[in-house]
Simulated assay, not measured.
Amino acid sequence: MAASDHLSTPNVAKLTQMQIDAVRRWHAEPVDNRFTGLEGLVCQQHAMNFCLWHEEDKARNPAATDVEIAGVKRAIDGLNQRRNDLIEDVDDAISELIRASGITVASDAAINTETPGSVIDRLSIMSLRIFHYGEQCDRMDVEEEHRKKVLQRLAVCKTQHADLSFSLQQLFDDLFAGRKRHQTYRQLKMYNDASLNPAIYNASRQS
């Protein structure tokens, strides 16, 4: 294919920088979404992870009451459902981009064990981890040993983030050259479905 055929290939560096910038911004300002198209979906999905991260922190507060924990658990379930739905939405958008690009996929093209949407989700969580380890480095109430441990972990996170970003760009390059086949994998979560979770439908019968 000609070089021009690759113009629609998603740019991973741009997507991950958006995630990193959003984490910083959202800690100072309300969660927002300044993007459209695939970037807008990636930002939406990232926002779910941002909110989940902080709800998970609340769930681990030793001073939280049982009522507070129950409320947090329900919030986590809802956010996690939306997070997984958006992973699929990202993959569906990638399928549409590939289709619209008129790419011919080789008949023997391999399929990846993990979809781009799932990798983007992992990169989102990693950007949150990097930010919060950075916060730990700036604490004034900790010993040097704590700071040293945090810096070591931060270095590992940054290396893993760079490696995963590089691998995702390779996957996109292969998908948009027709060397690999893309497919959205439906996660088909059951726990929030009142017709599939026995704890929910049995409770409704008893009430």
Score class of each variant (00 low, 15 high):
Thr184Gly: 02
Leu151Ala: 12
Arg179Ala: 11
Gly178Tyr: 06
Phe176Ser: 09
Gly178Arg: 11
Gln152Tyr: 05
Val150Trp: 07
Phe172Ile: 05
Phe176Ala: 11
Leu168Trp: 01
Phe176Asp: 12
Ser167Val: 08
Asp163Leu: 01
Arg179Tyr: 03
Gln169Ala: 00
Tyr185Cys: 09
Phe172Ser: 10
Asp174His: 05
Val156Tyr: 07
Leu168Met: 13
Ala162Leu: 14
His182Val: 00
Gln160Lys: 14
Asp174Glu: 15
Arg181Leu: 15
Leu151Ile: 01
Ala162Ser: 12
Leu175Thr: 03
Ala155Leu: 13
His182Lys: 06
Asp173Tyr: 03
Asp163Ser: 01
Glu145Cys: 05
Asp163Asn: 03
Gln183Asn: 02
Phe172Cys: 04
Val150Ser: 12
Phe176Trp: 06
Phe172Tyr: 08
Arg147Pro: 07
Tyr185Phe: 14
Arg147Ala: 14
Gln169Cys: 01
Leu151Phe: 00
Cys157Arg: 08
Leu168Lys: 01
Ala155Trp: 12
Gln160Trp: 12
Lys148Phe: 04
Lys158Arg: 15
Gln170Met: 11
Phe166Trp: 10
Ser167Glu: 14
Gln152Gly: 01
Val156Gln: 13
Leu164Cys: 04
Glu145Ala: 10
Gln169Leu: 02
Leu164Met: 13
His146Ile: 15
Cys157Asp: 08
Leu168His: 06
Leu151Thr: 03
Gly178Ile: 12
Arg181Asn: 08
Val150Tyr: 01
Leu154Tyr: 12
Gln183Ser: 11
His182Arg: 11
Leu154Ile: 10
Tyr185His: 13
Gln160Ile: 14
Glu145Gly: 04
Leu171Ala: 05
His146Cys: 08
Ser167Trp: 07
Ala162Val: 04
Gln183Lys: 10
Phe172Leu: 02
Leu154Glu: 11
Glu145Pro: 04
Ala155His: 13
Leu164Asp: 12
Phe172Gly: 06
Phe176Leu: 13
Ser165Ile: 01
Arg153Phe: 02
Gln160Thr: 14
Arg153Lys: 11
Lys148Val: 14
Gln170Ser: 08
Ala162Met: 13
Val156Met: 05
Arg179His: 05
Ala177Thr: 15
Tyr185Asn: 04
Lys149Met: 04
His161Asn: 03
Thr184Tyr: 06
Gln169Trp: 04
Leu164Thr: 11
Gln152Asp: 09
Cys157Trp: 07
Leu164Asn: 07
Cys157Thr: 05
Lys149Glu: 09
Arg147Trp: 05
Gln183Pro: 00
Asp163Pro: 01
Ala177Cys: 08
Thr184Phe: 00
Asp174Arg: 14
Leu154His: 13
Leu175Arg: 02
Leu151Pro: 00
Gln152Cys: 00
Leu151Cys: 10
Val156Cys: 06
Leu171His: 01
Asp174Trp: 01
Gln152Phe: 02
Leu164Ala: 12
Arg147Asp: 09
Arg179Cys: 07
Gln160Ser: 11
Phe172Asn: 04
Glu145Gln: 11
